[in-house]
Amino acid sequence: MDVPPDPDETAALLAALDLQIAWGADEALEEAPQDRTRPRAVLADPVSVPAAPAPRPVGPATRPAPAGGAVAAFAPAAARAGDLAAGADSLEALREAIAALDSPLKDTASKLVFADGVPESGLMLIGEAPGADEDRQGLPFVGVSGRLLDRMFESIGVRRAENAYLTNILPWRPPGNRTPTDAEINLFTPFVLRHIAIVRPRHLVFLGGTAAKALLRSREGITRLRGRWHSLDVPGLGPVPVLATLHPAYLLRQPSAKREAWADLRLLRRSLDRA
């Protein structure tokens, strides 16, 4: 006897399909994950495979010396960053304070990438750092990952031109789009916290592990931080609810993770509706 399809399940599947189309999905993934734990096939001629070199013992004489000079070099700039950030009482003043800070990133970047969107929206999104497209235009999230981000949030009724505000931890593009260093993140964190205090959002969304771990002061990765609400105590503002989610650049590399990102967006939408 055939069992009629569940209308609720059918509607959920159609909604998920519509979301994938809205996010720009253009290929189907495999039904089942590949088993990458199985050993690879052995080459027919084992002699042609070079033997792996024996690991070199690491003793006290071969350990790299701590980079104390690099840390010390950042100390004056970090102190000045705190003073500059604390003295900013508006978004324009904060932008000028960031531009006044001496940072090696300024020497390799083209433009300061400050923010985009509606500061009064109540929803603030914070990413990692500008990329090449952002560096050219001076705006955050305008490249390929930015277009995906726009489609993602538009699927829950959030648009940067209407009801969202976007920025990054770093205002300057790191050379070669590399991951920001801890010293660079610590240098610009006072500006980010002051940025939040000036904008006074009712909800914060951290895009990716770099922003989430830096501002939440957590050792956990983004896969453990996402999917639940956190609280960030912002000087001059107080606690603000925070949702961490996957960065759109990661979703471009791992399309199968869009399911988790969609769950985060639904969680955000429910909280926005209650507010």
Rank of each mutant, 00 (worst) to 15 (best):
R178K: 11
P241A: 02
D150H: 10
F153D: 06
L125G: 08
A100G: 06
A25T: 10
R159W: 09
L252H: 00
D135S: 07
A77F: 01
G68R: 14
A61G: 02
F206M: 13
I222S: 04
E260Q: 12
G138Q: 00
F206A: 05
P255Q: 07
F74I: 03
A41F: 04
P66T: 12
V142K: 09
L170N: 05
W229S: 08
L149K: 12
E92G: 11
E220Y: 13
H230F: 12
E154H: 13
A99I: 01
P119H: 02
P4C: 05
D135L: 06
A211I: 06
L225G: 03
D116W: 00
L216C: 04
S145L: 03
T167L: 15
V192L: 05
N186W: 08
T108S: 14
L91M: 10
A115L: 00
A161E: 15
Q254F: 14
F188V: 10
V144G: 10
V49A: 11
N186D: 15
G24D: 05
D116V: 00
A97V: 02
Y165C: 13
A28Y: 07
V142H: 05
S103F: 06
D150G: 09
E260A: 15
P239C: 02
L13P: 02
D18G: 12
P46T: 12
A211E: 06
V234K: 04
A86G: 05
L237P: 08
G221H: 13
D233I: 09
L216H: 07
A244P: 11
P235C: 08
L193C: 06
D45H: 15
A72M: 10
L232H: 07
A79W: 01
S121P: 01
S231Y: 00
E128T: 13
R274D: 12
G236L: 11
I196S: 08
E154P: 00
G69S: 13
A86Q: 09
G227R: 01
A28M: 10
R38W: 03
V113W: 00
A261Y: 10
